[in-house]
Design a protein around this nucleic acid. Sequence first.
DNA 1: TGTACATCAGTGAACGCGCGTTCACTGATGTAC
DNA 2: TGTACATCAGTGAACGCGCGTTCACTGATGTAC
Lengths: 241, 241
Amino acid sequence: MTTTAPLEWVRPPLQARSRETLERLLDAAEEVIEERGVEEATVAEVVRRAGSSVGSFYARFRDKEGLVRSVFERFADQALMTATDALSPERWAGVAIDQAIETLARFVIGVLEKKRGIVTALVARAPVDPTFTRFGERLIEQIGALLVGLLEARGLRANHPQPRLAVDVAVWLFLSALELRALATMHGAPRLTDADAARELARMCTRYLGVAETAIAKPGARRSRAKSSQGIRRARTRSIR
Amino acid sequence: MTTTAPLEWVRPPLQARSRETLERLLDAAEEVIEERGVEEATVAEVVRRAGSSVGSFYARFRDKEGLVRSVFERFADQALMTATDALSPERWAGVAIDQAIETLARFVIGVLEKKRGIVTALVARAPVDPTFTRFGERLIEQIGALLVGLLEARGLRANHPQPRLAVDVAVWLFLSALELRALATMHGAPRLTDADAARELARMCTRYLGVAETAIAKPGARRSRAKSSQGIRRARTRSIR
DNA sequence: TGTACATCAGTGAACGCGCGTTCACTGATGTAC
DNA sequence: TGTACATCAGTGAACGCGCGTTCACTGATGTAC
């Protein structure tokens, strides 16, 4: 009633000092969640890692839930930005569509490996929290749109009664498979090597969408596509930390 | 040291009465986990629903973790049994492979909708607990083997450098996609209708595996395959509760 | 430039709730003779 | 068939740990004149 209702998860900092504290708290929280999960990320532990104090914490966040949401929201934003950057048509000029998809798959595998903890937590929250359900939808939609761009730049169109839907389905399959694989790949050797997984996902996409596949390397063979994988490496460094 | 080390999650009941109590505890726990998640499934609440008592609980289970593991193990067993039953070649005699897959997809969608809570909990545990990682692998392997059987019964073989691997990949894609979709589909209308999802998964499998697709119905059209869907309905009633 | 004051930012001990677990006890079931 | 005893099964109050949250206080920063 006094001021505009502050129904936010994080109280905006007003000075540089507290903005830095906020950043440190978010970083520390993301770190602990990544290492030990949301349940283990106690306020005391987060605060300790951030070199802050309990009081400072509650000056920034309404409660612990506010912290968790903020971490997730920041992560979701980064993911969307990274996707946009990684899928810009210029980056992939001159690269065959299936090879582009394969390289992208390897990139996503790498990211998910580092972010397994948060991804797990996010997936676990989706059934409970509409916010994060919608995040997944937005991710698929946006990546779908970008993939359409990649196809159009090559004069390709899905051989399918509903080409646009087909692209979204392909993205859905691609992301689901890699996400679940990332969660399960923690213990022991993975059922499928990273290389196999990436190659087969590319094959699935081209075959399902009915866009011609170029010669996909036989298992064991190596190809060098220095240019495109370099581009991806840049993208990772830039947007995903 | 006294007897053989009882390193089990559940102390085996010795009388009929305590066996019934154990069942009621497991049922109650599964119920609460399904409705409100593992965290909310407190010992007090489980015991209350089971019409039992805290003391009885600790007579059966070493600790709360023992309960959770037992619930998961029971669920995993049921899932494997159901899969075996649902994929027996006799059940699908005379049904085109893509139509069989589409029907199976619809069945899995139905099951996952009812078991969303436990599936979520299982997925969230996979990164932490090798037992449940392995459960996922076993599920894929077993379903893969059964799918090969379905293909062979029709004289089909994956058009792929490594046909057996391709089948496993298809199963991996199939299950991952439906699992993640089940988690995200809780709020509001799903991005993709159940019918669309099932149809496209069937299309993906046939195209990726390179086995001919029969005429897949256009979106909106209805087909009746009373016989096969009847079979599935029986399977659900029998093995999955 | 200096002073006074308001607000922001930070600190950590203390509190209290919720939950898993223990334990002393009562009742039921099985077994030996 | 009956009696005595051992073990199994069940009960719920009490305990204590861990964790989120509060609060009274000190120090830093910005602003008005």
